[in-house]
Design a protein around this nucleic acid. Structure first.
Lengths: 220, 220
DNA sequence: GTCTATACACAGATAGAC
DNA sequence: GTCTATCTGTGTATAGAC
C-alpha cells in the first residue's frame, strides 16, 4: 500500500500523477479556477509536456468523474446472499461513504464539477451516476417491501435523503480529525436509520442501539 | 410580490440585478467559470458599465455570501418563548431549508465558492457561517439535555448530520417538481428526527407519524 | 450611468528540437 | 517523454467621451 499523499506520489506513472493532482486542484480551486500550468508544476513537468499524456484539460475532469462513479458502482455491486435488504442498504451506504472519503478530491470534483463537462460527456456521466442512484433506490424499495423501512415516504426521497446525508460529508471530513471514516459512517447510518429522537421514555428496556446500528458516544 | 425570476427582474436597481445575475451564473458555471462579460450581457449593460456598480468580480461573490448567511441568521434568530428545544430545532431546520431553497443560487454559491474568496474575506465569511452553525448546535444540545434528542452521539455530529441532510437538497431541488419546499422540509425533518426504520412490528398501535413529524406519502 | 476603445495578463494549446 | 518558444483567444479591469 502506498501511503503517500497527493500528486507527488512515487510509484505512479506521470499520467496517473496528473489525475491525482488534477483531483487535488479541481477540488481546491474548482475546474475553471485551476490552470494546466499549476497542475504541470505540481506534478513536476512543463506545461507542454502535459499534452503528451492528456488530450486536454477537460479529459482530466472526465476521467476523474468516470473513475469516481466506477468506485461507487463497485461498492454497490453486492452479491445477493439473501441478506435482509436493510442490511444490504447499510452496507452500501457505509461502503459508499468510506470510498468517497478515501478519495475525497475525486468524489468532490465529480459532485460539483459535472457542470463543467461538455454536453456529451456530461450526459454520459450523469447517466452513469443515475445508474448508481437507481441501484441504491431499488434496495430501499426492497427494504420497504420487507417492512424494514418505513413506507410512508416515497423511495425517491428516501434515496435523496440518504445521499444528502452522505455526500456533504465529503466537504467537511478531515482525515486527521477525531473520527475515522468508519466511525462517521456508523454515526450517519444510525442517524438515517434510527433518527435522532431520544428513545421513548424508558419502559425498563434498554435505551436503544441494541437492535439499531449502535453508534457510540463520540467525545470531542 | 415580484414573481419574475432571474436577473431580468424589473423593479430592481442595476446593482441588485447584478447580484441576482451573479448568483445565477456562479451557481451554473462556478465563480471562476463565469465572465464579467456574460454577467453584463445578462443584465443588459456593457462590461465596462459593471464597474460603475461594483468594485470587481470578487465583490459580487462576497456580497452574495454575506447575504446568504444573513438570511440564515435571520431564520435562526427565534425568540425564546420557552418552547421545547426539539420544536425550536425543527423550526430552525425547516426554516433554513425553505430559505435556502428559495434562494438556491445564492446559497449554492455560498456553499461551494467560499474557496474563491480572498483569504481575508474568506475568513470573515467562514466566521459568520460558524456562528450560524454554533447557534443550531446549541439548540441541539438543549434538546439533548431535555431528553428529546438522543445523547449517545456528540452534538457536533448531530449538527453536521442535519446540515448534510439539508444542504445537499439545494443542488437537486426543482421548484417545478412534484414537491414544494415545505413538503421536502417535512420529509427531511422526519427522516432526521424519526429515522427511516419501519416502526416496530405492530403492537396494535398506529403505524407511526402520530407523535412524529407526520410526513405523508408522496407519490411520484 | 452608460458607452467605445483598449490595456495587459494569462489562459489552453501547438510546433518542433532534443 | 520532456523541453523551450510561441500562437491565439479571452479574461478583468481602466480611460475617457457622452
Amino acid at each position: 500500500m502506498n501511503d503517500q499523499q497527493g500528486a507527488a506520489q512515487t510509484g505512479l506513472s506521470t499520467g496517473e500523477r496528473l489525475l491525482v493532482g488534477a483531483a487535488e486542484l479541481f477540488r481546491e480551486k474548482g475546474y475553471a479556477g485551476t490552470t494546466t500550468r499549476e497542475l504541470s508544476a505540481l506534478v513536476g513537468i512543463q506545461n507542454a509536456s502535459l499534452y503528451h499524456h492528456v488530450g486536454g484539460k477537460e479529459d482530466l475532469l472526465y476521467s476523474l468523474c468516470v473513475a469516481a462513479l466506477d468506485d461507487v458502482a463497485r461498492v454497490f455491486d453486492i452479491p445477493d446472499r439473501g441478506e435482509e435488504p436493510a442490511k444490504v442498504l447499510e452496507q452500501m451506504a457505509r461502503g459508499y461513504l468510506e470510498q468517497a472519503l478515501k478519495d475525497r478530491d475525486r468524489h468532490a470534483t465529480m459532485l460539483t464539477e459535472i457542470r463543467s463537462l461538455s454536453p456529451d460527456r456530461r450526459a454520459a456521466v450523469v447517466a452513469r451516476r443515475d445508474e448508481n442512484v437507481a441501484r441504491l433506490r431499488s434496495v430501499i424499495v426492497s427494504a420497504q417491501e420487507a417492512g424494514q423501512v418505513r413506507a410512508d415516504i416515497d423511495p425517491k426521497y428516501l434515496t435523496l435523503a440518504l445521499f444528502n446525508l452522505l455526500n456533504w460529508s465529503i466537504f467537511w471530513f478531515n482525515p486527521d480529525g477525531e473520527l475515522t471514516k468508519e466511525e462517521i459512517g456508523k454515526i450517519l447510518w444510525s442517524v438515517y436509520f434510527d433518527g435522532v429522537a431520544a428513545p421513548a421514555p424508558a419502559r425498563t428496556r434498554k435505551p436503544r442501539g441494541t437492535k439499531g446500528s449502535g453508534a457510540r458516544k463520540a467525545t470531542g
